[in-house]
Amino acid sequence: MDYHSDRFDDFSLIVRKDNEIVAVLPANKSTDELISHQGLTYGGLITRKNLDVESIKAVVDAVLTFLKDVGFKFLEIRELPTFYQCDLSHYVFTALMDYTANIIGANKVLAIDYNKPLSIHKTKLKHYRKNKDKGFEIKEEDNFDEFWNQVLVPRLKDRHNTKPVHTLQEISLLKSRYSNHIKQFNIYLKGEILAGITIFDKGHIVKSQYGATTASGEKERALEYLFINLIYKFKAEGKSYFSMGTVMDKSYPEGYNIGLLRQKIELGCNEYKQNILRISLV
């Protein structure tokens, strides 16, 4: 996470037992409050998979005792989506709630569960089959320059007057450090880039970090075609989940992007709730 260390006052924690790491809490400091790291999509308290319920409770006790001792008054922590740690996430959540934590919000996390039959909307499948004859070319690229400069940055600027969370230099640095875990897929028509998707490969889970299209690509349904192509690809590779991230957006009255939610559900995603907890330490 050091690539954006200038943006956050990092206060991440490591929990050890007999000098063995049993849990980590990526977090940053904000005055008298510790917050699940705001530079990460999920954050949360991450434990070893072999911990039992009592050990997880002991980890939570140790973390909260330490935070009290060093002067924090509040802990704001995001629940880890269940498809990342299965039952352990529930045990961590239960242990935190034992401290009379307040649920102050919840994120909607969208993901395809490959253990269930795919449920891509029939209209999207109709367009996908029709567009197979269009001449699309999909490539996995080694660099992000073309997608960032010609698609992602202009699209975000035009549509939302914003920028990607990662600069081109930052995503390139991460790629150089984790070359097998960060992948870029672009789609072209007659040599012109129309859309792209940046994938974070976490082993049995893949996550689309960025997905964007040009105006021409939107007319050709290029991003939709690329998403469905990757959905089939990762299923064939034996992945368990394809996460498409959250749809939370404070600019909407509902707190989330309704249109984006609908699109991801039509691509076959299920909705998972990620609770945000706040615990008083005083």
Score class of each variant (00 low, 15 high):
43 G>Q: 04
202 K>H: 14
73 K>D: 10
241 Y>M: 05
265 I>G: 06
243 S>N: 14
83 F>A: 03
275 N>A: 13
27 A>I: 01
13 L>N: 02
240 S>N: 14
257 N>S: 14
77 I>E: 01
151 V>Q: 03
277 L>V: 09
226 L>N: 06
106 A>M: 09
135 G>I: 10
182 I>P: 06
59 V>M: 00
7 R>A: 12
37 H>A: 05
103 I>V: 14
47 T>E: 01
262 R>S: 15
148 W>F: 15
86 C>V: 11
138 I>T: 06
195 A>E: 05
260 L>Q: 09
130 K>V: 01
179 S>G: 07
271 E>F: 00
147 F>E: 02
49 K>S: 13
114 Y>H: 08
116 K>A: 11
87 D>E: 15
216 S>L: 13
138 I>H: 10
101 A>T: 02
13 L>K: 00
84 Y>E: 04
60 V>Y: 04
162 T>Y: 05
186 N>V: 04
257 N>P: 03
71 G>S: 06
30 S>L: 14
9 D>P: 02
235 K>D: 09
78 R>C: 07
281 L>E: 00
141 E>P: 05
7 R>Q: 13
180 N>L: 13
122 K>Q: 13
189 L>I: 01
15 V>S: 02
268 G>M: 06
243 S>Q: 07
212 A>M: 11
2 D>Y: 10
189 L>Y: 15
37 H>K: 03
191 G>A: 12
241 Y>T: 08
109 V>I: 14
98 D>T: 00
4 H>I: 15
241 Y>V: 02
277 L>T: 04
127 H>R: 13
39 G>S: 03
235 K>C: 08
52 D>Q: 07
274 Q>E: 15
61 D>F: 03
